[in-house]
Write a protein that binds this DNA or RNA. Structure first.
Length: 947
DNA sequence: TGCAATGCATA
DNA sequence: GTATGCATTGCAA
């Protein structure tokens, strides 16, 4: 058994197409203008297979002239396939030449498809005792699988999977591989133009196979079906039979398997090199030479140990893991040497000294050296992205450009802890500055090892966020923009995401070292770059006093997490389920058919074409009927179905986004929900929250509000406290504009919207109607966003004219407010940016645009950004100060969440009174404005009650 | 599988 | 009219 011979049959076109499209976004064009993507893609995968498997027998199969038999059966067969792309047609002769030079047999038979050739050959070889692997991504081949015939499928993200009988049974939910033919016949195949049974898709086909076993079984027993399906299947019996025939791969092509011809021979290396040279493949040449330089004998015996899964020796894994050699890695930064003029520097083209540190004495000496530095850049490498569960794989250090060290970590937890203890003096040294990119992550990882990162911090991501908040701040982008350097990509190291992705732990040490130290080295270089820019942009203070101290605060909040009442959410979920089902039924009844209510497309057709609820339905910019909330709300009063749809939507959203999603996000290791605050995505300076987003938990509707009840204190000894700034943005605009009327109102603690209404509508404060107050409130908010009469009339019951009048009166009432807004726009025009009270800048490149729409947007930004941003600055100060007081006082109470103008705390009950005053004082005193800041406190046994 | 479009939750 | 994050559908390469 162990020396059973192995034959690999390669489905050439399938791999060529796949290779071609893998490069579609970044096609390989050589200096002669030829598109070589398809050739490179195909060769990458062929070499990959050879390298991994070292087959003793191999052939490559092509189509020729299409399938005569199938076209005879069904003239539309493959008729709607697009013309073969130019880049593929030109590739074929080259690939033939290369295969010839490699002494690999090309199997092709006029009038037959590669499927049929492979099918026939595999059966012949099986009879002669071979184990056969069909190298193809094409699912159709599953029908050929036997005990000795396997599919060898490339998978996205690199690597292969082997499909034997069990895999086929599982994937297709069939009892035998032959049933795959029936399955394909039933559901059809759009790309091959196999019609299939109308109305039967994947789901139904699987059901039928289970029920009837085959196409014939189905057609003979249609009496067991009912309704529309019965009619359809019966009416299309012939089509069904034909589809099955089309899907069947032929096993009687006139070709012969000749073991001797198929033996994998030594290639004519010079000839292959010559062709590669002509095509300008450099990396591929190296790869080719490497593949055939190794003595193939070693891998041979090992690879058949496991019956169904070809093995990969560790050594081969390493080379395959190099990524850019593998077509299926989809890596596109391999072969671009030709335009070297524009090429960025890389680790290969840059002098560097990156060294891993040996365990034991060497590490101790290294730490000694580390402690002599005044400023060090470090970067942790871990097993994952979740700092709560990620384990340290290594830590890279750099303090001189072009040079750095890597300390690898053992997998054993105790040993890892021992090693980190050796490094503790460095991390906890107050006088050594720590530099990093996204330090919050490293701080959290180290916190799990009970290490505190002390001393001054410099985070390059944060620095760049202040320098240019509108850009993205990941390290690769920064390195390319500021250092003209392309770092080793993580995909190159561990592959694309998916099940074949490696963990950093599985990457060979020297690669870990290169990758990790490179990151630290680059970060160090970026720091030097950004340091000056921070001073120039006058944001050094903001950096030192706000963003950097906030890193530790956020890290602590995220590590803390919040307690969630899962049982409560589960009961909420079943309630919702019932109500959704009821609504669904009503909607289907009213519509007279069942359809997907969640699909705007289908919904639009039902409402506006079938039921014709409106004469001239509004369309979206893509030409669909608009089913947006405001459009439907308008119709709701006339049509019950609309109200039901709106309710359905609301409930479905609530359930999927919150009620069902939140319990999934509970971290098993802590039993709590840990959001991740993004400090560098919102251009205005706000935080954002994700995984999960805890800044958009419902509150407006009664039903949605219930979700807040699921957020609960740590235990009975604790209580939640929510503290929110009242009208902070309006207070800011009042203060900055020095609009006395408004400032007065705030100073007297008036209801600001009522006060505005009283002035704008010229009525005494006590006689303001609800409607007047509501309208005034809308304008007040509108001002912050940069109102237009159009927008205002959309939001209120007012007409365009009335809205305009209201806005005009508003500006007359608060003249300085208008002046302030104009001043902001003027400032932006002159300087190209606006700024917050703390000097946080937002650049507005479109402020002088000739396009009125674009310019208008920039002008609204000029008004809004300083207000929203100043509010963000202020709450950040409050957070830092509160955190520091909590630390110093060693309180048990913890700050958990921030929601733009609100902070949520887990309060230890005995500390409640003290906390109330501390929090209120710190928040209200965070920043001194011409208007007092006001904070409302609420407490409760859940987040809803705390409001 | 990945992406755009649509819709909707918050401040 | 400002600022976000995320679920779902349906299509593409």
């Amino acid at each position: 058994m162990s020396d059973q011979k192995r034959l690999f049959l390669v489905d050439a076109y399938a791999l060529i197409f796949r290779g071609y499209y893998a490069f579609i976004k970044n096609p390989r064009i050589n200096s002669k203008g030829e598109d070589t993507s398809a050739i490179m893609g195909f060769m990458n995968s062929l070499l990959d297979v050879i390298k991994r498997e070292r087959p003793d027998h191999l052939a490559v199969c092509f189509d020729k002239g299409g399938s005569v038999d199938r076209v005879e059966m069904f003239e539309a067969y493959k008729a709607n396939r697009d013309e073969t792309p130019e880049g593929i047609r030109t590739a074929i002769p080259y690939i033939h030449d290369i295969l010839k030079a490699m002494h690999i047999p090309i199997m092709v038979k006029e009038g037959y498809e590669a499927d049929d050739v492979i099918g026939t050959l595999s059966r012949q070889a099986e009879k002669e005792g071979y184990k056969v692997f069909m190298v193809t991504p094409d699912k159709d081949f599953a029908q050929l699988v036997t005990d000795n015939i396997f599919m060898y499928r490339p998978v996205f993200g690199g690597g292969y999977e082997t499909w034997g009988i069990p895999e086929v049974q599982k994937k297709f939910e069939v009892a035998t591989p032959e049933q795959v033919i029936d399955f394909l016949g039933m559901m059809g195949d759009a790309s091959d133009n196999i019609p299939g049974l109308p109305g039967v898709g994947e789901k139904t086909a699987k059901k039928f196979i289970k029920q009837f076993g085959s196409m014939e079984g189905l057609l003979e027993n249609t009496h067991e079906l009912k309704g529309k399906m019965k009619e359809k299947v019966e009416a299309n019996a012939e089509l069904g039979k034909l589809s099955k025939e089309l899907a069947k791969i032929m096993l009687d092509v006139p070709v012969t398997f000749d073991a001797k011809d198929f033996e994998l021979d030594h290639p004519d290396i010079d000839k292959v090199k010559e062709i590669f040279q002509e095509l300008e493949f450099r990396r591929l040449t190296d790869n080719f030479l490497k593949t055939f330089a190794e003595e193939p004998a070693e891998a041979k015996t090992e690879s058949s140990e496991k019956a169904t899964a070809p093995n990969v020796t560790p050594k081969e894994q390493k080379s395959a893991g190099a990524g850019q050699f593998s077509l299926f890695g989809g890596d596109t930064d391999g072969e671009v040497e030709s335009d070297s003029e524009f090429k960025r520097r890389t680790i290969e083209s840059t002098a560097h000294f990156y060294q891993s540190v040996a365990p034991g004495m060497a590490t101790k000496l290294f730490v000694k050296n580390l402690l002599n530095q005044s400023s060090v850049c470090f970067d942790t490498e871990t097993t994952g992205l979740n700092p709560l569960t990620a384990e340290l794989v290594g830590i890279a250090f750099a303090w001189e450009i072009g040079k750095g060290f890597y300390v690898p970590f053992p997998e054993n937890k105790d040993e890892a802890q021992e090693l980190i203890e050796v490094l503790r003096p460095f991390f906890e040294n107050d006088s050594i500055e720590k530099i990093g990119q996204n330090l919050k992550y490293d701080i959290k990882v180290l916190a799990k090892y009970n290490i505190e990162v002390k001393g001054k911090l410099f985070d390059t991501m944060l620095a760049h966020y202040l320098i240019n908040p509108d850009m993205r701040h990941n390290m690769d982008v920064l390195a390319e923009t500021y250092l003209n350097y392309t770092p080793i990509s993580i995909t190159e190291l561990i592959g694309k995401k998916g099940k074949n992705q490696l963990s950093m732990r599985e990457v060979p040490l020297e690669k870990q070292t290169e990758y990790g130290v490179e990151d630290a080295d680059i970060t160090l270089q970026l720091k030097e770059h950004f340091q000056n820019e921070l001073t120039e942009a006058n944001t050094q203070k903001l950096f030192d006093d706000i963003e950097i101290p906030l890193v530790r605060v956020l890290a602590a909040m995220e590590l803390e997490g919040i307690n969630l009442d899962k049982a409560f959410l589960n009961s909420l979920s079943s309630d919702l389920n019932n109500d959704i089902a009821t609504l669904e039924k009503k909607i289907y009844e009213a519509a007279g058919e069942e359809f997907n209510i969640a699909s705007p497309k289908q919904l639009g057709i039902v409402l506006f074409e079938k039921l014709k609820l409106v004469d001239k339905p509004k369309k979206t910019k893509t030409g669909q009927y608009s089913t947006a909330e405001d459009v439907l709300s308008y119709l709701a009063k006339d049509h019950d179905i609309i109200q039901n749809i709106l309710d359905y939507r609301g409930l479905a959203k609530l359930k999927s986004t919150y009620v069902d999603a939140l319990p999934e996000q509970v971290e098993p290791s802590t039993g709590r929900v840990h959001t991740d605050y993004m400090q560098t995505v919102a251009a205005t300076g706000r935080l954002s929250s994700n995984n999960p987003n805890l800044q958009n938990i419902p509150i407006r509707t009664e039903r949605g509000r219930q979700v807040r009840k699921a957020f609960i204190p740590r235990n009975e000894d604790f209580i939640l406290l929510a503290a929110d700034y009242s009208q902070i943005e309006l207070r800011i605009i009042a203060a900055l504009s020095e609009e006395e009327t408004m400032i007065e109102a705030f100073n007297h603690g008036e209801d600001i919207h009522a006060s505005t209404a009283s002035k704008v509508f010229n009525v005494p404060l006590s006689e303001v109607t609800r409607e007047q107050r509501a309208n005034a409130k809308t304008v007040n908010f509108g001002i912050i966003y940069g109102v237009s009469a159009f927008g205002l009339s959309n939001q209120t019951d007012l007409s365009r004219g009335e809205a305009k009048e209201l806005i005009d009166t508003y500006y007359e009432t608060y003249p300085k407010l208008k002046a302030y807004m104009n001043k902001q726009v003027d400032f932006a025009r002159d300087h190209g940016y606006v700024q917050t009270v703390l000097g946080r800048r937002r650049y507005l490149k479109d402020i002088n645009s000739r396009n009125a729409v674009v310019r208008g947007a920039a002008e609204r930004n000029a008004v809004n950004a300083p207000i929203q941003g100043s509010a963000a600055d202020i709450i950040k100060i409050a957070m830092i100060n509160i955190y520091s007081k909590l630390e110093v006082g060693n309180y048990k109470s913890k700050m958990l969440l921030q929601v733009h103008d609100e902070l949520v705390f887990d309060i230890y009950k005995p500390e409640l009174e003290e906390m109330k005053s501390l929090i209120k004082t710190e928040m209200e005193g965070a920043y001194k404005l011409a208007v007092p800041l006001d904070v409302d406190l609420g407490i409760g046994d859940n987040w809803l009650e705390a409001h």
